[in-house]
Simulated assay, not measured.
Amino acid sequence: MQDLVVLAVTEWLDHPDREKAFFQGYGRDLTCAERHALRCLTALDAVNCLAWGPDNNHPEVTARGRRTLDRLMRENRP
């Protein structure tokens, strides 16, 4: 799941067609447990971006972290 985090928070976010194409090529959708793990790992990635980006003068990484956390907070999930 860790390998899918960057895709989930960049390419797939604005292009759901790319996510669909990826999983068609992969041959299956994620299981519920895998989707939950991906959600948790994207939250960890966001926190990492928010810690690393400002300290390393990297506004794009910082913005990615904020965008991911904002999206996760808007989702209606536990």
Rank of each mutant, 00 (worst) to 15 (best):
D45R: 10
D45T: 09
R77N: 14
E11Y: 10
A46N: 04
D14E: 10
Y26K: 00
P16V: 13
E60P: 08
D14Q: 06
A43V: 10
L7W: 13
H36V: 05
R71W: 15
P59N: 08
E11F: 11
C49N: 10
A51K: 09
A37L: 04
W12T: 02
C40V: 15
R64T: 05
V47G: 07
E60A: 14
A8F: 03
N76S: 12
R39W: 15
A21G: 03
D17N: 08
V9E: 10
R71H: 15
Q2N: 15
F22R: 00
W52M: 01
L69K: 06
A43N: 12
A33C: 05
D3S: 04
W52E: 05
E19C: 06
T68M: 06
L69M: 14
G25W: 03
L72R: 09
T10K: 07
F23H: 02
R66Y: 11
A63C: 09
W12R: 01
C40D: 15
A37Q: 06
R67K: 14
N48T: 06
T42R: 10
L72C: 04
M73P: 02
V9R: 08
V6L: 14
A21E: 04
E11A: 11
V61N: 05
A46V: 01
L30N: 01
L7Y: 13
W52K: 05
A51D: 08
P78A: 15
V47C: 13
N57C: 09
N57E: 12
D29P: 00
L41S: 07
A33V: 09
D55M: 11
D3N: 06
M1V: 05
L72V: 07
N57M: 08
V5M: 09
E11H: 09
P59W: 10
T10Q: 08
C49W: 03
G25E: 01
Y26Q: 01
L38T: 12
L38W: 11
E34V: 00
G65L: 07
T68P: 05
E19M: 06
C40K: 15
V5N: 10
F22W: 08
L50I: 04
P54Q: 11
K20R: 12
R74W: 15
G53C: 09
Q24F: 02
V61M: 11
A21D: 05
V9Y: 09
A43T: 12
A46W: 03
E60Q: 14
M73T: 13
L13M: 14
C40Q: 15
V61A: 07
H36I: 06
F23Y: 06
T31D: 02
Q24P: 00
E19G: 06
K20G: 02
W12I: 01
G53Q: 07
R66T: 03
R28L: 00
R64G: 05
W52P: 01
W52R: 04
A63K: 11
L38I: 09
A51W: 07
A63D: 14
C32D: 04
L4P: 02
L50Y: 08
L50V: 03
G27M: 00
L44N: 08
D3H: 03
Q2H: 13
